[in-house]
Structure formats: C-alpha cells, structure tokens
Computed example of a mutant assay.
Amino acid sequence: MNILFVCTGNTCRSPMAQAIFQHKTKHHVQSAGIFAGEGMPASMGTTEVLKQQGISSDHKSQPVTDDLMKWADLIITMTKNHRDLLKQSYPADADKIYTLKEYADPQYEHAWNKLKESYAHLEEAKLAGSEVDANLTDQINQLEKTVQNVDIIDPFGGNYMTYQKTYQELDIYLALLVKKIENKDR
C-alpha cells in the first residue's frame, strides 16, 4: 500500500508521521505539504524528537503534486482543513483522503455513525411534531465535538515539549492506522 501523509509545510507533522509509520511498517510512505517548498529539511524539533525515539529521518520537503496524489492508495492529512483543501483540489481522489484520526480511530467511526443516527431521531421528532428530548440534543452536541476534533497538534514554532506532544499523539493514531491496515490486508 502507498500512503501519503500531508500537512502544511512538510517540515513538522507529516515528516514525523512518515518516519514513525516507516519505523512501524513496511508499507511505501511519502509525505508532502500543501504549501511546502522543495527540499527543506524536517524541522529541528521533529528531527530531535525522532532521534530521541531511535527513529532516523533524512527528510526533504516536497509539495503535493498530481503524481503524488495518483501514487497514493491512501492520503492521510493532519487536519480537517488539509483534508478539505485536498478534496476540493483533487475531487477525483476524494474517496482516499482522510484525516489521520477519522481514518484510524474506531471511536471516531462509532461517534460518526451515532451522530447520523441521532440526527435521524431528531428529524423524526420534528416531523412528528414531538418535543425534542434534551438528552438527544446534548448527545448530538457531544458527538459533534468528537467528530470535529480530528486535527493533530501543530508544533511549528513550539519548544521541544510541543514536538514531543505531537509525537505522542501521532504515535497513538499511527499505531491504530497500522492495526487497521494490517486487518484489511488479511
């Protein structure tokens, strides 16, 4: 499987995700940035955090291109804004573009399905002229927060601890991604 990780400048989150994922699997992985320049190294924070984890990376930034989009079987973005911009720019590839959290986390999928179900109940109540249950409204509000919380922390400009926090978040969701892909391969 060919996987493309995408962030903004391709110097922090996506190269970190690429390096961690390559460390965990044998899949073909690249990273790119929506507004990336060509050939920039990974940020010092990214390099340092990866090094502390025993993961090497000889990263050079690259922008998202038509060829990369065609190459990828799965495109994983770091934020919903990245996802939405790519889907708008590459509509033919929309079915393979996701944020990391929404694709990898089974709790996200469960929350999304529960939200759709809750909206259906809300519409049924409105159509029937019934009073809307306050618990249903509260449930919808909570589920909306869950499904909207799909961004990976951007460490750009932050200190070492910020990069370490991003690493920890990526490591959790990339482990879920590995598990999901391995289950699909079976």
Score class of each variant (00 low, 15 high):
Asn2Trp: 05
Ile3Asn: 03
Phe5Trp: 07
Asn10Phe: 03
Asn10Cys: 04
Cys12Asp: 12
Arg13Cys: 01
Met16Thr: 04
Ala17Val: 03
Gln18Thr: 05
Ala19Ser: 12
Ile20Trp: 01
His27Lys: 12
His28Leu: 11
Val29Thr: 12
Gln30Val: 08
Ala32Glu: 09
Ala36Asn: 07
Ala36Cys: 11
Glu38Val: 15
Glu38His: 09
Gly39Asp: 08
Ala42Val: 07
Ser43Pro: 00
Met44Arg: 00
Met44Asp: 05
Glu48Ala: 15
Gln53Asn: 06
Ile55Ser: 00
Ile55Cys: 08
Ser56Gln: 14
Lys60Cys: 03
Ser61Phe: 02
Pro63Ile: 11
Val64Thr: 03
Asp66Ser: 08
Asp67Ser: 08
Leu68Asp: 07
Leu68Phe: 03
Met69Cys: 04
Lys70His: 08
Asp73Leu: 05
Asp73Tyr: 11
Leu74Asp: 02
Leu74Ser: 14
Leu74Cys: 12
Thr77Ser: 09
Lys80Ile: 12
Arg83His: 06
Leu85Ile: 15
Leu85Gly: 02
Lys87Gly: 13
Lys87Cys: 00
Lys87His: 11
Lys87Asp: 04
Gln88Cys: 10
Ser89Lys: 12
Ser89Gly: 15
Tyr90Trp: 09
Pro91Ala: 12
Lys96Ala: 04
Lys96Val: 01
Thr99Lys: 08
Lys101Met: 00
Lys101Ser: 10
Glu102Pro: 12
Glu102Ile: 05
Pro106Ile: 02
Ala111Asp: 14
Ala111Arg: 06
Ala111Pro: 09
Glu117Cys: 02
Tyr119Gln: 15
Ala120Glu: 15
Ala120Trp: 05
His121Thr: 05
Glu123Arg: 11
Glu124Thr: 14
Lys126Ala: 15
Lys126Asp: 01
Leu127Trp: 06
Leu127Met: 08
Gly129Phe: 02
Gly129Ala: 06
Ser130Trp: 11
Glu131Ile: 13
Asn135Cys: 07
Asp138Lys: 06
Asn141Lys: 14
Val147Lys: 03
Asn149Glu: 12
Asp151Trp: 10
Asp151Arg: 12
Ile152Gln: 03
Ile152Gly: 00
Ile152Ala: 01
Gly158Phe: 13
Met161Arg: 10
Gln164Pro: 05
Glu169Pro: 02
Glu169His: 14
Ile172Thr: 13
Tyr173Phe: 13
Ala175Pro: 03
Leu176His: 15
Lys180Val: 08
Ile181Met: 15
Ile181Ser: 09
